[in-house]
Each structure stands twice: as structure tokens, then as C-alpha cells.
Nucleic acid binder design. Structure first.
Lengths: 214, 214, 214, 214
DNA sequence: AATGAATGAGGGTTCATTCAT
DNA sequence: AATGAATGAACCCTCATTCAT
């Protein structure tokens, strides 16, 4: 019967709803990047071309939306890492491609979101995080094995530095660092090259250190 | 004698306004570091142990408070740069000392504040900014002249990277990057060393690029 | 049918926004009259039976609400003047009818609002003001031509005096002048009659003199 | 002994205090006229050249200060009425002089204060009110007896109208009616002349009607 | 399912009043 | 006695969230 009903009215509503959800997530991602982490839901709804209440049909509350945006970015970043690993001959070039690509993904704008203290997020992210870590470690392992990467750095170090160096300035500022981000990533990458030019203080960071429930 | 009494009993009931002002600025600085740039004035007042309206006796409004905190941090950072330049034999070591010291100053938490769109702030900060730039350039010039620093980086590049790499994660997160900041600064510093290991994309950043009125 | 049902049960749960808007304007008008121009929005919201934030859905801010209330009263006053001019045989009687009617419109309570320093208000009011002036001048011209009105007074004189004489006392006072307003208007009207019983000092007031942007 | 003490330190403090009180009242009167009924106590204190807390040494609270300002204005207005009655030959001219003088006293700005719902005020004002009424009635009686004043008006009518016609517009407006006040008072006075040109509606107003405790 | 409208809770700010010197 | 400083209560306004259509 439900099938009949669907046939009568077409599966349009379902498709529309699913499409709405995607549009909201995409709009939220863009809004976070452009307006900072404090964008209002009304602004996100406006960008998505839906009513504000529609957001609540798809997401329980604001942090749930943020969570989903984070997952979305994680997925894209995973794909980025995996394709960099698969495509590039030069392992260090794969690392550079990953870092530069992360800039385009605005991972710096959305990494903050990682820190939302939300246990459910940690749970959902666990798998994504692990997969991303595996991909990035793959890149780094290969580079290290090729003698291109200094051996005293771990995937967490790189992930954190990339995220921080690509973060936009807070507020609705007219100052943008966009022009310089690649420079600073490149300088950091140069510091990662073997042979190491100094002894690093502290212990290498792993993705585990980014979990907020310990 | 009163000093002795004060030492024994503590500064009794002095309730002087100038002390309150200092306490407010200090509380604001800490609050910005811990809770981000959006802390409420109530939270700041609570930390300072004063009523919220007391803040308005000392500062015209929220942005005026932010301005003063920024100036305070600028002053401390200037002193940091100047003493590093004066004290250290090795010019690159001076740079490292400056970078590490900036971590302690929480410059990453307060640099974001630079972006507050406030013309008066820019005006007041102009002199401080120039002085800080001079000091940092002094360090870098010496290091470059000693053949320790790659020649294709400018003071703005270093300032931005230090600020970004030392920023705390947003939100009231339980994740802190404190343990790793020195590592990542060190990696960046290694990337700064001569000889350059790559050609940098884009143009070198100057302090001028950090002004928000253009 | 629905109309019948509505008549029987009253407008059930219509909760339409346009009705809310009207209720807010009406509540604001009454509140201004009773409590003066400084009533809080909370009081207005309470009278309108809505939450305070609802006011902001309909009006950008406080002055926008004031603007709309003023326009509303202007419209009613224009209609008052035009119908007085059209209906009354005796031109001086038309003037009296206008003055007395203005009392009912509480124009004295709301004219003060005219002084809100708001450029947008002046702009929007310009047309209304001109139209009201035309109507009142029409009344006065006819009365003057009939030899009933002294020739040395202008429309601004009459408008100001009516507004002032019908103003309620400020504060939440228990003293009301309502009982006396018509008396004082009548005395003023008697002073307006031809022949003039004295030479008036100063220059005649026009509506132009009531604009706040010069 | 207290006399001795006073002699030792001089009666200066007493004189200063009394002088301060007068300065505060005068400053408050001016501030009310210039800035409206909502002037802050800080502004009044600034004008008086004293600290804000000093106001509280002389007046229990804001309404107590307002009360005293009202009494001050009442006193000046009484003197105005009594001297007009004593000096002028023509009884109607005395009325005109009183009305115009009231403009200079800014009675319109301070009459509002009459309406402060404060029982203590009514008590203190009772005598002043009575005395002012006697003086104004004296003027009006003489004018009526001379056949110059229409017989159907009472002192309250005149008092109210003068107060209303001389009130400044509220808010920090750039529109001032100062230029026109005398005109409108004159028109009202012309309406007061005998013979009456119309029958007045309602009952004549007495000062009793201005009391707020009934 | 989707949405425009409504709202309570909370933030920045002001000011009459009180406190401490 | 006089005052600079401190403050709670209240105002305007915003926004995440809920309601009614």
C-alpha cells in the first residue's frame, strides 16, 4: 500500500527530503567557512533554500547538524588521503597533495568542530577517524620508508598542524589568510623532510590524542 | 610596616579600582584562552570577582575590553621578541625562543582578536604592531645574515604560523593541544632553516597583510 | 459557512501573523498613550498578548515600531481632517470637529513621537505630513475665506497647539486631563476666530517647522 | 560646644553643604529642561559639579530630588503670579505676563513633574499649590470683574493650558517649539477674553483637579 | 513533510542606588 | 561631608528551538 501511495504521488517527497538534507549539510559547511562557527541556523536555512524548521526535521538540534557536517568533511578528507596515496608516485608529493587538498576542503574551518564535546560524535567519528588515520599513515609510512620523511613524526602531528595552519581567522573579519596558507603548509612540509634538522620536544601525536573523551 | 601587615594579612580591603582593572584584563585574557573569543562578560566578571557592570566602569564596551587585552598581549610579545633578540647569541635560537615564548603568552588565543573589526583598534595597535614587526624582523635579519634562515620568508609568514599553530581548539573542549604545540612549532622552524628545501608558492606575508582595513 | 462558524465560535486559532502585527501596533499605541514614549517593549508585548521577541519578527527594532505607530496615527488623522473638510457645511465647525477628533485619536500622545530622531521616519512621514497639511489648510482656508478664522495663523500653529493641549501627563499618573481637553481646545478655537483680538508675536508655524532635520 | 566646634572649623562646611544642595536643584532643573525627564543623575551631578553620591546626601532618592525641583519651580511661579498681580494695572495684561513668564520658567518642562505619583509630594505641594491658585485666581478675578475675562473659566483651566502649551517635545529632539510658544499662548489668551465666543463643554478645572490622590 | 511564526532564555549595556574610602 | 567605585535589576535585542498551519 505504501508502495501504491508512493507510486501515486511518486517517490518525489522522499527524494526531496533526502535532497533537502544534503543541501542543508552543504549549506552549513559553506556557512561555517564563510561566517565562522557562530552562523545562525536561519542563515544556513536561507542558503539551503529551506525553512528554518526544516533543519529540525532532519537534525535533532544544532550540534547534531554540526556533527553531520563533520562526518561529511571527514568523508571527503578520507577520499582525499586515499586518492593521494593511490595516485602519487612520490610519497612526499602525496603528503603535499593531501595537505594542499585539505586547504580546499576547508578542513581548518571544520576541524574546530572535532572538538565539540559530544560523546555521540566521538562514537560516530571513531570509524571515520580510524580510516583517515590509516590512509594518512599509509602516506607517511611510504614517505618514511623512502627516506623522505623524518621518522620522529606521527600522523597526529601532521593532522593537527594542517588543521591549525588552514584555520580561518574568527569573526566576520575582512582579513583572510587564504593567500598564505599554502606557503605555511609548504614550510611545515619542508620541516617534515628527512633528515630531521632538530630533535623534536614531547611525544608524537596520534589521532587517539584528538579524542575528547579521556 | 603596612607592607609587612599586608604580607601577613594579605592586602586587606584595598578595593582599589586600578587593581580591579588589572584583574578584569587578566580574567579576560584567561577567559579568551579557555573559552574562545565569545566568552560572555558575565563569565569574565565572575572570574575577576566583580559585578558585570564594573567592567563598564573601566571599559566603554566589549570591544574596548578586547582592545585592551590585545594591547596587553602585544606589549608582552614585543618584550618577548626584543629580549630574545638582545639575549641570544645564535640568531635562529632567538627565533625559536620567540616562538616558544609566544606559546606561553597564548598569543594564538589572542591573535584571533586582531581580527575584531574595529577601526580604533587598528589605530591604537598600529604602533605596537610596527614595533613588534621591527623586533621580529631584527631576529630574522640576523638569522638570515648568518645563513641560518631561508631568504624567501618574511616576518608576517612567521607571525601567522606561530599564531595559528598555538591556537587552542574552540569550544569548551576537553581536548588540549598544549602538549604538542612545541613540536609543531619546531617542525615549522625546521622548515624555515636554510637552505630552503622547496620553492614557496605565493608572496611573503608582511604585518601589513594582517591589517583589517583594506 | 466558515464565516458563520467564526461568528459563532469567534475566530478560532487563526493565530495569523497579520493579526498579531495589528495587535502589536494597537497595543503600542495604547501603551504610549498611557505610559508615555518610554514604555518597555515587554509592556507592549504583554498588552498585545505576545512574547517580546514576536515584536522583532514584525519590526526591526524599537524605532521601527514607533515609526509604524506614528504612520498609523497619521493615517487616521488624515482621514479625520479630510472627512471633516468634506462633511461640514460650516468651515469653522470642521476645524472644531478636527480638533476634537484629534483628542480621540490621542494625537497628543503620539505627536511627541514625531521627535524621534530617525531619518527614515522623516522620509516615510514626509508624504503623510504633506497630505495632512493640505487637508488642514483646506479647512483653514475655507474658514478664513468665510471670514470666520483670523488670518494671521497657519496650519502649523493649529497642529502644534492641538497636539500639546491633548498630550497626557507623563508618568503612570492617576491624574488625567481627559475631562478638560475639549474645554481647552475650545478656548483655543475661540482665540482663532476672526476678528483677531490681538497681534500675535513671532511668525506663523508651518508643518515644515516640525521637521527634525534642519 | 557645637558652636565652639563650628567656630573652630568655621561654618564653611554647613555653608558648602547648603550651597551644594542649591546647586544640585538648579542643575537638575536645567537638565530636565534640556535633556527631558529622563536625564541621568550622573548628568545632573556633573552639571552641579559634585559627585553623584552627593545627591544622595541631600535627597533620599531620585523622586525626592524631582519633588524639590518642583517646589522650587512652584516658588518661582508663585512669585511670578504675585508680582504680576501687584504690578500690572490692566488685569488681563497681568494674566498675559504670567503666561509668558511661565514660559521662561519652563513650567511646561516641570509641570510634568506634578504628576509624579508620590503622595508625599502632594502633601508638600498642597500649600504651594494653594498659594499659587490664590494668586492666579486673584489675577483672574480682577480681570473677570473688569469685564475682560470670560466668566466660564477657572484657574485650573488656565494653569493646565499654560503648562501644556509650553511643554518641550520629548526626547533629545532637534525640533524646538520655543519660537512659537508665545503665539499659542496668545491665541489661548484671546480665547479667554470676554465676551465668550462659545459655550465651553465640561466643567471648569480647579487646582484640586490636579491632585493625584483621588 | 515543510514552513512561517512564536518565544524563552540569555547577552550586552545602562543607571539608580549603595559601599568604602 | 563628599566622593569614586561597585553593582543588581531592567532594558533592548538575538537566536536556538518549538508550535501551528
Amino acid at each position: 500500500m505504501s508502495t501504491t501511495a508512493e507510486r501515486r504521488h511518486g517517490p518525489r517527497l522522499r527524494a526531496d527530503a533526502s535532497r533537502n538534507r544534503e543541501r542543508i549539510v552543504a549549506a552549513a559547511r559553506e556557512a561555517f567557512v564563510e561566517h565562522g562557527a557562530d552562523v545562525t541556523l536561519d542563515e544556513i536555512a536561507r542558503r539551503a533554500g529551506v525553512g528554518n524548521a526544516t533543519i529540525y526535521r532532519h537534525f535533532a538540534d544544532r550540534s547534531e547538524l554540526i556533527r553531520q557536517v563533520t562526518l561529511e568533511v571527514m568523508n571527503r578528507t578520507i577520499e582525499l588521503a586515499e586518492s593521494a596515496l593511490a595516485d602519487e608516485e612520490d610519497a612526499f608529493e602525496a603528503l603535499r597533495r593531501f595537505a594542499y587538498g585539505a586547504t580546499e576542503e576547508r578542513i581548518g574551518a571544520l576541524c574546530p568542530i572535532l572538538s565539540e564535546d559530544c560523546e555521540a560524535l566521538a562514537a560516530q567519528l571513531a570509524e571515520k577517524r580510524a580510516r583517515l588515520e590509516r590512509a594518512l599513515q599509509g602516506i607517511m609510512d611510504r614517505a618514511r620508508d623512502s627516506g623522505l620523511l623524518r621518522p620522529d613524526v606521527a600522523s597526529g602531528d601532521v593532522m593537527i598542524a594542517i588543521a591549525q595552519l588552514t584555520r580561518p581567522l574568527p569573526g566576520t573579519t575582512r582579513v583572510s589568510l587564504d593567500r598564505f596558507v599554502h606557503r605555511h603548509l609548504q614550510l611545515f612540509l619542508d620541516g617534515l623532510r628527512a633528515p630531521a634538522r632538530s630533535a623534536l620536544p614531547g611525544a608524537a601525536a596520534t589521532f587517539e590524542d584528538l579524542r575528547n573523551d579521556h
